[in-house]
Amino acid sequence: MFAEYLTRGVKAGLVAGLVFGLFMAVVANPLVAYADELNHAAVEESGHSHEAESAHSHDSEGTHSHDSEETHSHDSEETHSHDSEETHSHDSGDSHAGEGGGHHDSAVSMAVTKAVSVAAGGLWGVVLGGAFFGVAFFFLEPAIPAPDAAKSYLMGLAGFVTVSGAPWLVLPPVAPGAEQSLSAATRLPLYAGMMLAGALACLSAGYAYTRLRESSGPVPAVIGAAVPFALLAVLAVFAPENAVHGALSPTLETGLTGLFAFGQVLLWLVLAAAHARFRPSSESESESAIPTAGRDSAPMAD
């Protein structure tokens, strides 16, 4: 039985991974590359006073990769950043502009980054599907307060809140190239801590809902379930603030943040819909209870 649940979770993960990998390839990859390019154009234009900010990337790479980068990064990177950088790149050194044009402080080429990112997008779906819809769903299914297929959607909601929603209350997705006031060493534990808080909020909301529904009816149950999420929001208010500022226009940054958030929402929605659809037929006596949302996203499975 455990193996069946795990298989079903991973299958849903494959479907979602396919969709998210596609999203990576056709939406996120070109946009991140473009945003990086804009950032570097802005930084280069503002003169070399930026050296202090991005010294960690440019100084280290500018020196040792001069001869090797100059030759082959020329055709791929230089073409699209040509107009903005041509003016001063030739006197200050080609490797500086050639690298900076496409990609920010990177150890690998943009092509590798793109390919690996698409693969990671696919695996991201599989990992989340296996962990949440395989393992966690096996244990929690009896406690999820919903009719059969709707359990998958509640699991998807809880998964989103845990992995992305709760941490994003403190550290929302940032546009490429933006500077953040908190260091990575502070942000990683903060992100992990908010994930834990999100998971606890979801579990206690489910518990409160089930208990209150038995004792006092549906309305107090819904209110009781909302309390943990309110506490989560309060917690986020008291978390250290991460000021973000980048060279991109605020509108574009908002749009990118929204797009990345939308990508994760889409991922969880596809996961839940696929998982609901892969329900073994023996369990689905109440077939009519399957929400139509499950049907809507079914073609994505193909």
């Binding site: 990576m24 996120a28 990609h103 920010h104 980054t113 990112s117 997008g121 990345f260 994760q264």
Partner: peptide, 9 residues
């Protein structure tokens, strides 16, 4: 190499 993916996620 995960740079773009991390942004998208």
């Amino acid at each position: 190499s995960l740079h773009n993916f991390r942004h998208a996620a």
